[in-house]
Amino acid sequence: MIRLALISSTETSEAYGALITRLHRAVWTVYAPANSGESGQALGKVTEAASADAILADQTDAFDALVIDTDPASTARLAKAASSLSKPILAGPAGGKLGALGQADTLLMPAHPWRFIPSIQSVKRSIDAGKLGQAGLLRIHRWLPPDEGGGSLSEHILPDADLACWLFGGAPKTVWSLQSAANPDYIQFHLGFANDGMAMIDVAASLPSGGDYFSLTMIGDTGAVYADDHHNMNLLYAGGQPNAIRTSQGRSDLADQLQEFVDAIGEQREATVTLADTSRAAAVAAQVIESAQTKKVVEGRAGN
């Protein structure tokens, strides 16, 4: 049984706590708050350290692997501090900031929870099973309220840059993007991949407060897959116009990502998400911003 430590907010610890019964071959043993006053009570009977730094200094015998799930800057700082412990780390999402850690001797799995969402897993399985044939066109619309968008423009872009690279199996060869002059929280990027693959992605962090919207289409030469919030809306009638309410995909993203981390440790293998993936996506995000600023086509520089 792998003993896990968690550094996070109360809210995130509650999300992990709800997954306790679904986790195989691992158990939570230590919790440290991302900020003072927060609690890991939801994780059950665990040792609560006074702070994130304290867990790294005083509690290292109480856990085998560390999960850091805080804001990107703190995650990167804590991951760097924890790297000297030679314990496996699941860190993030931390955007490109994790790339500075370089190649670690022990497992460092960057969190890319967007890959583990059930709809995205279904898309990936369809591609991997050959149902779609040669991948041709990826279309993503991701619209967020400002409070969900958070972070920098680069951080907004990174998840979909990663999805594009992951689904096409490599980095883009060329990058083109447009940013709305009227809405700096909106960007569209247009990627060209090998074998005439292409991706058209728009990210808007300017929806009014409330729900977000995500739609992903992948078209291959023998089929297509549509993962679309629009399709998964139900209706609520409470007077006036009906409201569309999206059916939840649950928290399989968190559970499956954590299980992959645990399994990679147990099987002493590389995780399916690597630091190279994060670096590649961060490099693409940087190229997207460069193209928007220069209004020129940027040749891809990220490694495959």
Binding site: G136, L137, R139, W176, L178, Q179, S180, A181, A182, Y186, Q188, H190, D196, M198, A199, M200, D202, I219, D221, T222, G223, A224
Partner: peptide
Amino acid sequence: DLATVSLELENGIVGSLCIGRIGAAGH
């Protein structure tokens, strides 16, 4: 038979078009 197009419109509006004749198996 497949294309993606970024559009820059008057008044600063940004647009895009994805278009294709994707084969009967795709929908």
